[in-house]
Amino acid sequence: MKANCNSLGKRLMLLSLFAVLSLPLFLSSCDGIDCTINNVVTLHVGFYSSEGTELAYADTLTITAAGTDSVLLNRGVRKSAVELPMSFDAKADTLSFSFDGYVITLRVAKTNKPHFESPDCPIVVYHELEGLDFDDPLGQVDSIVIVRKSVNNEPLENIRFYFAD
């Protein structure tokens, strides 16, 4: 019986030794860079008819960031929704929506809040929408409304365009 106990003790000692030696490997294997896959914060804009049904706009659509040479969407076709990056620092962004034959200019006022996830991941900037106004010289749009103020990395709609019939 004593022999059994001793051999059991030796086995446990070996197990302990194994654990001590393998623990650093075990712990290091748990580490990794796991940034959010979709770490781009975008403004989600949806297009609707005046009745509120989703509208896949048949014309080509180009969206540019006013004051820059950045094209956010180049000749998109049959788009019912678009995702647009916002500026990190500015208090308001001006976006130019160029449909075939007319242009709608949208200004969005916002606050900006930097957000970190991990030392290995890039900083993202969240936004809180404070208001908007738009220029629509040809009267193609009934209204543009904010449906969700928080702009973060959740894929939820923020702004709706209601087009006139």
Binding site: G67, T68, S87, F88, D89, D93, F116
Partner: peptide, 21 residues
């Protein structure tokens, strides 16, 4: 604490001041 250096806005241009939280 969390700190990071200044970073660039690749779409709208300009530099965002880094965080020193």
């Amino acid at each position: 604490d969390f700190q990071n250096p200044d970073f660039q806005d690749p779409i709208w241009g300009g530099s965002q001041k880094g965080l020193d939280l």
